[in-house]
Design a protein around this nucleic acid. Structure first.
Lengths: 247, 247
DNA sequence: GAGTGGTCTAGACCACGAG
DNA sequence: TCGTGGTCTAGACCACTCA
């Protein structure tokens, strides 16, 4: 909206961005304090913070209250593949992802019951999976399956995301339909805290519902990825000639 | 990050949000000026602007420099359906969408050439479509097709998005593959201006590449939707029993 | 020119983190 | 306790819109 009028905080953001990209500020390192930077650039702290907010929005800087501003290690790009036949994330190197899983036995209600097309109070098992790429949070998945389709035990911590997903898939009848809804929204406070992102920065949220040939929902998953380095790919193959309704 | 400490600008945002939602401030109307509101809430203009920024991020308020802050009419939710067999947007009432189309004959280069898998300088036709829902911008689509597959003429303005897409589809050989990449990013300055959204608010960007049975790319589309009221739905049907690689 | 939002200042005080 | 970021003030001046 402001258009092409250069503003001081943009200049500063550009300068800091350059220093980060050229490696003059080391990855993972702390930037000088805001007070120091404000003096260095001869601006007020408010303006300097505005500049840092720009970089935070770009995912280059992580602010930690009471500690400082840190240059964020550029995270591996996350590619989610749609279609449901494969693990959620399978970039070539995603074996390096570690996962923390919290399991709970819950009962369906409200939105979740509707999503899974089961009566309220149906027994479900909930898996909350936080995957990490090295030290950095990577993605958050909340997976719900009918209790009778859940593995009896799931390791609390696993070094392989693929293994976990395979574990779930074993119990599952063959899939017939996968419906994935992709949306953009601001993270909840919890999500922002867990993923270590600013609460003003959007996430890529995917709601995935899988059902078997009988139409029974065998899994519902609420997946959340930091928006600045995630993407979802969907591939559709049209196996028949295009005559009328085929999809 | 700040956590549970209530802050003045959040309180104000909450109050204004309530007034908007309960209709005490009319849709499309201008809010009192920032100076007036700042006095009313007994805060500085900076703090008041911070509160408005929250509402702007939620898509409730649209700021227009020199004019005022306006309560944004809640836009119809945009649902993009993946798979490529259908028009981009087909909520029941999307016949109400109007579209402005700018057509240009261009030549492939760089990223676009790679995307369409054609040599640089291949002749393409570009369609830039801005669709509007009533008065509000709704989505921006940049569609590229090989020159020989482009309709000779496209109406500059059309009242029906569906008609336009059908127009394009007529020229097309049967589709074999559709690949859609969904990502979240900040809008470019141009996109922010055209879609009338703040440049700090993320958009849902879809890159769609369609190819025919021979593997030729017959269309590449760069679609941009305001992130706060758009979603994309992908449905996969598994027609065979699940044995090995079938995706 | 009058009224609006956009940017900025030079402080102040509060909340968090680590020793 | 000290250094950090988080919020806020009471102005100032500039840029945009419209009569």
């Amino acid at each position: 909206m402001t258009g092409l009028v250069p503003s001081r905080h943009h200049d500063i953001a550009d300068d800091l961005r350059q220093q980060i990209r050229t490696g003059r500020v080391q990855l993972g390192e702390r930037l000088p304090s805001e007070a120091v930077l404000a003096e260095r650039y001869a601006v007020s702290t408010v303006t300097l913070r505005h500049a840092l907010a720009v970089l935070q929005g770009e995912g280059l800087v992580e602010k930690i209250h009471g500690k400082g501003n840190f240059v964020r290690r550029p995270l591996r790009r996350i590619t989610y593949r749609g279609g449901g036949a494969m693990p959620d994330v399978h970039t070539p190197a995603d074996v390096a992802l570690s996962v923390t899983i919290r399991t709970a036995k819950i009962r369906a209600r409200g939105h979740l019951a509707a999503l899974m097309n089961v009566p309220a109070r149906s027994p479900l098992t909930e898996f909350v999976c936080l995957s990490r790429d090295g030290g950095s949070p990577h993605s958050l998945a909340r997976i719900y399956v009918p209790r009778d389709l859940a593995p009896a035990s799931v390791p609390e911590e696993s070094s392989s995301y693929v293994g976990v997903v395979a574990n779930l898939a074993e119990m599952r009848p063959p899939l017939a339909d996968v419906r994935e809804k992709v949306s953009v929204r601001l993270p909840t406070q919890e999500e922002a805290a867990v993923l270590r992102i600013g609460s003003a920065w959007a996430v890529l949220a995917i709601t995935r519902v899988m059902s078997d040939a009988a139409g029974r929902v065998v899994e519902a998953a609420l997946l959340v990825f930091p928006g600045d380095h995630a993407e979802a790919v969907f591939t559709t193959h049209h196996q028949f000639d295009q005559r009328g309704t085929e999809e």
